[in-house]
Write a protein that binds this DNA or RNA. Sequence first.
DNA 1: CTCACATTTGACCAACTGGTCAAACTCACG
DNA 2: CGTGAGTTTGACCAGTTGGTCAAATGTGAG
Lengths: 204, 204
Amino acid sequence: MPKDRSPTRIQKRNRATILEAALDVFSQHGFRGATVDQIASAAGLSKPNMLYYFPSKEAIFTELLSELLDTWLDPLRELDPAGEPIEEILAYVQRKLQMSQEMPRESRLFANEIVQGAPRMIEELSTDLRALVDETEQVFEAWMAAGKIARVHPRHLLFSIWSLTQHYADFEVQVQVLMQPEDPFAGAMEFLETLYRRMLTPHP
Amino acid sequence: MPKDRSPTRIQKRNRATILEAALDVFSQHGFRGATVDQIASAAGLSKPNMLYYFPSKEAIFTELLSELLDTWLDPLRELDPAGEPIEEILAYVQRKLQMSQEMPRESRLFANEIVQGAPRMIEELSTDLRALVDETEQVFEAWMAAGKIARVHPRHLLFSIWSLTQHYADFEVQVQVLMQPEDPFAGAMEFLETLYRRMLTPHP
DNA sequence: CTCACATTTGACCAACTGGTCAAACTCACG
DNA sequence: CGTGAGTTTGACCAGTTGGTCAAATGTGAG
C-alpha cells in the first residue's frame, strides 16, 4: 500500500490504469461478476501488484463510483435557470445523450449498480443527488409558474430525460439488434427534440 | 434428474418453487452474482435437492428467461392495429407501466441481462423480438400515413415507451429515494399520458 | 554510487463456488 | 402392507476467488 505522501509518477499512472481497466470490467460484469484477476490483467498488472495500489476489489469499485458520479451529474449542473427554458432543457437532453454515446461504460456501471439495489450508492443518492434534484425541480417549477413551459410533474420530467437518454447506452445491445442497420444515435436526438418540444411548448 | 414422464405433483410444486426463488435471487444479483446455495435456500431446498430438478444454475436461468420473455412481450401483442391509434398506444403504455409495478423482478431480470450484453438472450432478441418490433413498426407507420398520429421515428417511439415504463421498475431504488414520500407510480401514468398525447396528437 | 524507499512477484491460503454421488428416506400403488 | 420408483441428504471434490506475505527488484535524491 503506497504511503499517503504525495503520489509518485508510477503511482499516478498505475492507479489511473487500474481505474480505467476496472471501469471496463465492472461495467460489463457488475461488481460480483468481475474478478480481481480480470481487472489486474486488463490493467497489465499482476494481482498482488494491483492490490498494492488498492486495498481491495471493493475499494476499487467504490472509488470508481464516487469519482464518476460527479462527472455523471455535470450536465445537470450546467442547466441555467436564467436561460430560455425549452432550449435549456433540450441542451441538457443533448448533453445527456452525448454522454450515453461517448461514455456508455460509465452509464452501464451505474445502471448495473442501481438495478441491483445500489447497495454501495444509496448514501450518495439520498444526499448529493437528492439535493441536486430538489434544486432542479425548483427551476422547472419556476419555468412552469412563468408559463415558459407546459405544466407537467417536474420530477417525472427529469426521470424521463434520464430514462430516455441512458436507455441508448444501458440497453445498447437490444437497441443495436433492433435498429440495425440504422445508427441508433443518429435518429435519437431528433426524436427526443420533437418529443420535448411538443410536450413542453406552452399551450394557449 | 426426474425422468421425462409426466411430472409428479412434487415435481410440479418444486420446479415452480425453484423458479420463483430463482427469479427473486437472479433479479437482485444477476446471473454471476447469484449462488445456487442462495437460490436453493430461498426455495427451502438443499442444494443437491434443487440440482435434482435442474441440471445446473445455467439451466434454471435460461428456463426462467425464456419462460418470462413471452409474458413480457404480451402487452405489445395486444396492440390492435384496427383500434383508435392514440388510445391504443396509451393503453399499451398503461399495460407496460402496470407490469413494472406488479412485476418489477421480471423487469430487473431482463435489465440485468441486457445491461451486461445479453449473452444468453441475444438469440431470441434478434429473432422473436425483432419480428414483433418490425410488425409494430408497420402498425405505427400505417397510423402515421393515415394522419392518425403525428410523424415520429416509429422505433424510437417504441423504445421510448419501454424506456420510460421500465425505468420505474429497473431503477426503483433511485426513483424511490428521489420521489419520497410521494408514490412514484401515482403520478407516472398521468405524466406519460400527457407526454404521449402531446407528442402524438396530429398537428394541423 | 548508494541506500532508503517504492514497486513487483511467486508462492501460498482460507473461503466459497458449482456440481457429484451413494446412501437413505418417502411415497404411490398393486 | 411391500416394493420400486421418486425424492432428499450429508459428505465430498476440484476449480475459482479475494487477499496475504516475504523476498526480490527497481528507482531516485543526495
